[in-house]
Simulated assay, not measured.
Amino acid sequence: MMDFKNKTVIVTGASAGVGAAVARNFAKLGANIVLVARGAEALDKITKDLASITDVYSHTLDVANSEACRELVDIVVEKFGSVDVLVNNAGYHQRGDVSSNNTRDLAAMVDVNLRAPIELSSLVLPHMLENKSGAIVNVGSLAGRTPLQGAATYSATKAGLRAFTYALADEVKECGINVGLVSPGPIDTGFIMDNMDTVEDIVFSQPLSTAEQVADAIVKVAEGKRTEIILPASSGFLTTISYLFPTLRRKIRPSLYEKGRKAKLRIAQGK
């Protein structure tokens, strides 16, 4: 297993939720933490929280900006000497049917959820290959394991990210680099909870995970214990069946929508 003490970990989308929880986990394991996010104020807060634990560097950028990502990796290598772990956690989701979405938002989902992780992985890999060690962990989604109507583009980006992860894992499996992903269902963070009304009811048909549970899974993947961890595990079976048997998926979809609608109402009422 990989030892993270004095290693350098880049976490995108690190200002809150899963990203902040991941940063805390790696900080407790003795890693140097590089926090990346768009919002400076929230990023400053988590930076101050972790500064007493380990060496922390925060960097404000949009991961969809290719040149900014290149500059980030150069800065991190100059400051810490290497990049040992990359956690591609930043995500963007503009919910709704394809026909009702702005094309700029559709493109932004592809840029943030798929292109950026691929580019960042490409940028850090030479340093990991030189050191013959490292880890890249991508944050996927149950939506990337089975098509999700009302989230077609988001689902496509996460499916693409999953395929990229498995292919890259095979490319570097003999190089001492752990590559994998965590595929969670709904997470109790602002990513979905702040805009529940816009979230498809079917999403809530699956149990909520906490940011800490997802963060723990990310560390396990980085350690090389698994290539993919699905949260909750029971949802992994359901997504596999629904992907392999699309006719069955369409038949059970109404019942999942009803289950999700009821769960969503309970959550909204604070029960």
Score class of each variant (00 low, 15 high):
F4K: 02
I10S: 06
V11H: 10
G13N: 00
S15W: 02
A16M: 15
G17A: 00
G17K: 01
G17V: 12
V18W: 01
G19H: 04
A21F: 00
I33D: 11
I33Y: 00
I33C: 03
I33R: 04
V34A: 06
L35W: 05
V36H: 02
A37W: 03
A37L: 00
G39H: 14
A40I: 14
K48L: 09
S52L: 03
S52N: 08
I53P: 01
I53K: 11
T60E: 15
T60K: 10
V63Y: 10
N65Q: 00
A68D: 11
C69K: 07
R70S: 13
R70A: 15
E71D: 11
V73Q: 07
V73W: 12
V76A: 01
V76L: 01
V76T: 13
G81Y: 13
G81C: 11
S82W: 10
S82M: 09
L86R: 11
N88P: 07
N89K: 00
Q94C: 06
R95L: 08
S99F: 13
N101A: 15
T103W: 15
T103H: 10
V110H: 06
D111P: 00
D111L: 10
D111W: 05
D111G: 03
V112S: 02
L114M: 10
L114N: 09
L114R: 10
P117S: 00
I118Q: 08
S121W: 09
S122W: 14
L123F: 13
L123Q: 13
P126T: 05
P126A: 11
H127W: 08
E130F: 11
N131G: 07
N131I: 03
S133C: 13
N138L: 08
L148A: 15
A152F: 11
S155W: 14
T157G: 03
K158H: 06
G160I: 12
L161Q: 10
Y166L: 12
D170L: 09
E171T: 05
V172H: 09
K173M: 10
K173F: 05
K173N: 07
K173L: 06
C175K: 15
G176F: 07
G176Q: 05
L181D: 14
S183Y: 03
P184Y: 09
P186V: 06
I187P: 01
T189H: 00
F191A: 14
I192Y: 14
D194P: 07
D197I: 12
V199Q: 00
I202R: 12
F204W: 03
S205T: 09
S205R: 14
S205Q: 08
S205H: 09
S205Y: 03
Q206I: 14
L208R: 13
L208Q: 09
S209F: 12
S209I: 05
E212M: 08
E212V: 10
D216M: 09
A217W: 01
K220F: 10
G224L: 01
T227H: 12
T227N: 07
E228C: 05
I229P: 02
I230E: 14
S234P: 03
S234R: 13
S235W: 13
G236D: 12
S242F: 10
L244I: 09
R249G: 03
K251E: 13
K251W: 15
E258C: 04
R261I: 01
A263S: 14
R266G: 01
I267G: 02
Q269G: 08
Q269I: 02
